[in-house]
Design a binder for these strands. Structure first.
Lengths: 212, 212, 212, 212
DNA sequence: GATGAATGAGTCTTCATTCAT
DNA sequence: GATGAATGAAGACTCATTCAT
């Protein structure tokens, strides 16, 4: 994966532009249907720079995935370290996870579509990140069991995966419904925010009862 | 989508061969990286027949998805109609869903990667099927609330999506782990069946508590 | 290297057209400056067929080289087997070699430019062929030494290489001079044939004395 | 072609570094597959300086060829002027020619691959140099005929070309064999020097007899 | 003098689809 | 019904060259 070298701000800015453009284009039609031509068009740069900053189209996608999931993990770890209780930590992590997806549905869709794909250049990198993300969740669930807020019968390993699956799937579902409503003119654009609040309430309630 | 014509058994067999070959190839490298050349090679037929049985490459994929999800829905409806209680129905549906994925991980991976993609030829068809699948789940959850086995606080709409997300994600995760263990030689091939049993116990326990 | 399958005459004809077009284009500007676009344009076929019949641009070049040098070797072997004496065989081989180059200067130029290049896809194949060609020459020189027509002091290995180098270099030189004269209008087009005769006389005289 | 400006030693050193790097890279993969990026990387300078010292990539190659062949011609002329007899001169020139190639096989390979190529930027320059080189050889052969050491039947024009072809081809062949032996561990690195001595003996013997 | 980011035309290659046999 | 040769549009990637800093 292309490394960012702190050389110039200009170069970094170009790199960022390409990454942003790529994510938006990829989420629009998927990685395979995304052309480098389109990415550089959206980024407003020439095709050559794309290959000056990244080794390949796959390298761009890998950077997006790694930086994106890496950011989520970083926040998970910060949240976990700061939370007064495991329950608190889990709630905060789910909120933070959902917030990232809500704010960047493009990234969420890309992530889901790639999470189980095999044979991609980034498959290995992604699996490592996934494991790290699950590990943070697992450790908080186990902490909750030690603290007594989560019943012993829960399988930490299972719940970690289940939470990721629920949040990802349900968030994308809710986003699609909200987008549909806005598109149909049945709801104002702020419906998005309301959907997010309602969704967060549901999932926290669900996990709370499952753990009790 | 190409209709199956009951004409000959030969034709049906060829059609089935193509569909199976396509699914296996698609799950290996994704729809976009799958070539018609490769499909017919795996199916052991000439390229001409593929276009005799299907209108296009997308048509093949659509058939796989529609027939696959359609089968799941059909079973859901049968199970729901036969179940003595909502709780019973939900458990049976989750079991049946997971069983399909366990038995055909290729299909599961393809489904997940396409579920949220927009702009595909089959996107609309898939969304309709998804809605039908969710509707069956929702109706059983609501029945459970009427029967008193599911607490009123549960949002049926949310739980339906959450269950689909959990089952899909967790099943694929467990399958990958089992595959990894078998690959590494750390476990015998029957580890698959044991994994499935353990997984089913976890998810039923989890949903049971979340609903109680 | 793409294998020719005797399936259809049509397909074989297309393959041959591509090979001929490729040789003519390659000899015009060299392999690297030859585009597949230009080859198919000259061949009068679509770009797709080129890749249906050959694996790559390099594959086309390899076929030209292998078939071309292979043809020379075949003729060498026939000539060597039929010649009443080693001297006779050597003369006939030099004539046959020079004739191929005179008749197809394009091929000669391509061969010389690739003979010493390393790291090409066809480098290994070419080296094997070169060794076979040298072996035929060597065996006739050694036969001449046994027959007493070639002095013992001659190093067969060296002379084989020397003959190839002389014939190749001198032939191309003479061709260029003849082309130049025709281009300048200083000589009629038949100058080519006269040049070939004069050249053959010189080289045979030279080798004859060197061996005596 | 870029002129060397006696300005600074620094500039000259950079120029030389670029030329050496270019020759080594070109001989490795050919002119067309050589990138300016790779040249400056090997030379250890930035891309800007390359274009400060040379007008273009072709300019670099032209300089290598012109300076290389020019050096050979210069030495030929010095040798020819100093030699007591034509035979002496020819021997010395062949030795000097072979020595250059032995010491710089990269240059030899580049020269051979470009000698017959048409349409290159340096094609004309190269042809002029070739003609000058052949002229020196021819004049010594004719001198030998006047001195009586070379039989009248020899065609000076032909022998000049033949010698160039033989030396170039045979030298490169011997170098490759020596490199192969060293690579295979079948011979020590000094095998190179021995090969050169044996080769020189063979070619001088061959030409001597051809001329007698 | 020196740097390296940026350009964009040009190449090879792929592949869904068609159709003559 | 079946085959496989042919099509051509489209896409990833390269690289000589320029130029602002």
């Amino acid at each position: 994966m292309a490394q960012q070298r702190g050389k110039t701000n200009k170069a970094d800015a170009t790199r960022r532009q390409l990454l942003d453009a790529a994510l938006s284009v990829i989420s629009e039609r998927g990685y395979a249907d995304t052309t480098v031509d389109r990415i550089v068009e959206v980024a407003g740069v020439s095709k050559g720079v794309a290959y000056y900053h990244f080794a390949s189209k796959a390298d761009i996608a890998t950077c997006i995935l790694v930086e994106g999931v890496g950011g989520i993990i970083d926040e998970f770890e910060v949240v976990a370290a700061a939370a007064p209780s495991a329950t608190n930590a889990l709630v905060a992590m789910m909120e933070s996870f959902a917030a990232v997806i809500f704010r960047n549905a493009d990234f969420g869709r890309f992530l889901v579509s790639e999470l189980w794909r095999r044979g991609r250049e980034w498959s290995d990198a992604l699996r490592v990140l996934e494991e790290r993300l699950l590990a943070v969740l697992r450790s908080q669930i186990e902490r909750g069991q030690r603290e007594g807020s989560i019943r012993a019968g829960v399988d930490a390993s299972f719940e970690a995966v289940a939470i990721v699956g629920m949040v990802l799937t349900a968030t994308l579902h809710y986003i699609r419904e909200a987008e549909q409503r806005i598109e149909d003119g049945c709801a104002p654009a702020r419906a998005h925010a309301e959907t997010e609040r309602a969704f967060l309430f549901h999932i926290q309630d669900y996990v709370h009862h499952a753990n009790a």
